[in-house]
Nucleic acid binder design. Structure first.
Length: 111
DNA sequence: AGATTGACTGCAT
DNA sequence: CATGCAGCCAATC
């Protein structure tokens, strides 16, 4: 029943990134853990840009198998996301604004 | 139904 | 900046 989360992740535009907590908040009353857990349980024929989901630190999380986080970084760079010298992404700049998504689900007070 | 875990987050040390 | 602790919700055993 992670379809909800997958839907949110799928709404993330290329060149942007979202945090687990953010996705969790948009997806529903879930906890960031469920998001990570959901992505770890990604279906085989998924179409989910899971690499656009990172943690609050602006860094990719240490996933289940070694080397995977490196792949995520490459995918993000391929979409235009830039990493700092500390391997971190500027969430203030690449952070996804789910303002137009779901609409009512997110009362971000918009800018 | 109870216990454990998991790609998280925030605060304290 | 790294590590530790607790809250969080759902899935799995």
């Amino acid at each position: 029943m992670y379809q909800r989360i997958y839907s949110v992740v799928g709404n993330i535009p290329a060149g942007k990134v979202a945090t687990y907590g953010q996705v969790a908040g948009i997806a529903g009353r879930c906890s960031p853990r469920q998001v990570g857990y959901a992505l770890s349980a990604l279906p085989e024929g998924h179409d989910i840009p899971w690499h656009r989901v990172i943690n609050r630190q602006g860094r990719v999380s240490p996933r289940s198998f070694p080397g995977g986080d490196l792949v995520q970084r490459h995918l993000l760079e391929a979409e235009g996301v830039v990493f700092n010298d500390k391997d971190r992404v500027d969430l203030e700049r690449f952070g996804w604004d789910p303002v137009w998504q779901h609409g009512n689900s997110v009362v971000k007070g918009g800018e």
